[in-house]
Computed example of a mutant assay.
Amino acid sequence: MIRVLLADDEAMIRAGVRAILAADPGIEVVAEAGDGREAVELALGHRPDVALLDIRMPRLDGLAAAAEIRRAAPATQVIMLTTFGEDEYIARALSGGAAGFLLKSGDPHELIAGVRAVADGAAYLSPKAAHRVITELSGGRMSHGADARRRTAALTPREREVLALVGAGLSNAEIARRLHVVEGTVKAYVSAILTRLEVRNRVQAAIVAYEAGLTPAS
């Protein structure tokens, strides 16, 4: 069972998201918050697998709440859920350690897919958000490529292989099947990769993989 914390200052939005998640018997909303500070407190109390956070909330916005949750409860994966698709929000969410970014205007199936993906150790961006990230990367690939190649050169061949698959959006389970190893081995590789690349999460690792030319943009 995937345990989810839902935080949004609009009760109707929370009700709608809760109803969508209830359609999946493998997902349970264990706590709800109406502001960012309450979300952090509930995350520490319930230790959910996934925290779904709205970006704009009173007391503490979702971006700040995400950073606090990731620091205090690193096992909890964070997905930002918002009506805003501006690049600055996406960039700040990812740099703060969020593993996913979904737009409230997206397909309800994306919500369930996103929760399942990040709970399984993968990253998830809605198609619109992913397009914005790729567009940004395409403009900066030449300038960042040399640094990314230098950083990935320090990895072992196997670690670079795993990183390329992370960059392609595969979960730990999918990588394990692809490489014919157990999932625990993949988790160990990913942990080592994040440490050696000095990045916070899989999304940031995927960006390095793209900039280094280990994985294509599509």
Rank of each mutant, 00 (worst) to 15 (best):
P157T: 07
E161V: 10
G97I: 04
F101C: 10
R151L: 06
H144W: 09
P58C: 05
A154K: 02
E68M: 08
L165Y: 07
V182D: 05
A129G: 14
D24A: 15
G106W: 04
T185S: 15
D35T: 08
R47V: 12
Q204H: 07
R3D: 08
E183G: 06
V182F: 01
Y189T: 08
V78C: 06
R92S: 01
R132I: 15
A146P: 02
S126E: 11
D35K: 02
A98T: 10
A72N: 00
S138P: 03
P48T: 04
L155T: 13
L179T: 11
G36N: 02
I69V: 15
A146E: 08
G114Q: 04
R149L: 06
R56F: 13
A91Y: 08
S143R: 08
G114L: 03
L81C: 06
A129E: 08
L103I: 03
A153K: 05
E159T: 15
A209H: 09
H180S: 09
A7W: 02
H144E: 10
H109Y: 00
E174P: 15
L6C: 02
A192M: 07
A73Q: 02
V40S: 15
D9C: 09
A23N: 08
A67H: 12
E88F: 11
P127V: 01
L53C: 10
A99F: 00
D49L: 13
E198G: 04
S95T: 14
Q204N: 08
V166H: 01
P157A: 06
V118F: 03
A67S: 15
A148T: 10
G97C: 01
F101M: 09
A206C: 14
E88P: 11
Y89W: 12
A66N: 07
I20P: 15
L5K: 00
M1H: 11
E28Q: 13
V115P: 11
V17E: 09
R56C: 13
F84T: 04
G85L: 01
G45S: 14
P108A: 03
I13H: 02
L52S: 05
V40E: 14
T215R: 02
T76H: 01
A153Y: 06
E161S: 12
T215E: 06
H131N: 10
A7G: 10
R18V: 09
A7E: 05
A206E: 13
R3Q: 12
L5G: 07
M1R: 12
L63A: 00
L163G: 02
I2P: 14
G145C: 00
R177Y: 07
A192R: 15
A148W: 04
A153M: 07
M80G: 13
Q77Y: 07
V30T: 06
A23M: 11
V162M: 01
R196G: 03
H109A: 03
S138E: 03
A123C: 09
I193Y: 10
A19F: 10
A39Y: 12
V208S: 12
F84K: 04
P108M: 00
R178Q: 11
T195W: 10
D9T: 13
